[in-house]
């Protein structure tokens, strides 16, 4: 586990760095807050509504599809590591897995889930 000590150290340093620079910048920067400055950017007009409104359902769809395919890469990784040892059996098995996956992939494609309108 000794190899993970430098990683922890790097995470700590990388986390401390922005705090240090923000502290430095707090000493240097001007501070003149005003209501107009703090209002959300809106191309010159006064904001009329909350920004957190409805947005396209497509984004959820992308997230769901991503989950499916990401789990698939998780399944592929152990085979990728052991492909030599698993030999022909592993190759055929992963071929079957990919074939089934391509079937589902073709289905979502034909349903239009991959087309962004």
């Amino acid at each position: 586990m000794r190899g993970y000590v430098p990683i922890l150290l790097l995470l700590l340093i990388a986390g401390a760095l922005p705090l240090a620079v923000w502290t430095l910048s707090r000493l240097l920067r001007p501070r003149f807050p005003s209501a107009a400055k703090a209002s959300p950017y809106e191309c010159g007009i006064t904001p009329t509504s909350e920004a957190r409104e409805k947005f396209s359902v497509r984004y959820y769809l992308v997230a769901v599809l991503f989950l499916v395919f990401d789990v698939e890469t998780v399944f592929l990784t152990p085979w990728a590591l052991q492909s030599k040892e698993l030999g022909l059996f592993g190759l055929v098995e992963i071929g079957l897995f990919l074939f089934l996956l391509l079937f589902g992939y073709g289905y979502i494609w034909s349903k239009g889930a991959l087309t962004w309108e």
């Binding site: 240097l28 920067r29 001007p30 703090a38 209002s39 959300p40």
Partner: peptide, 11 residues
């Protein structure tokens, strides 16, 4: 970047 004013949007 370090010396610019830091603006926190009101909402």
């Amino acid at each position: 970047l370090v010396t610019k004013e830091d603006i926190m949007p009101a909402k």
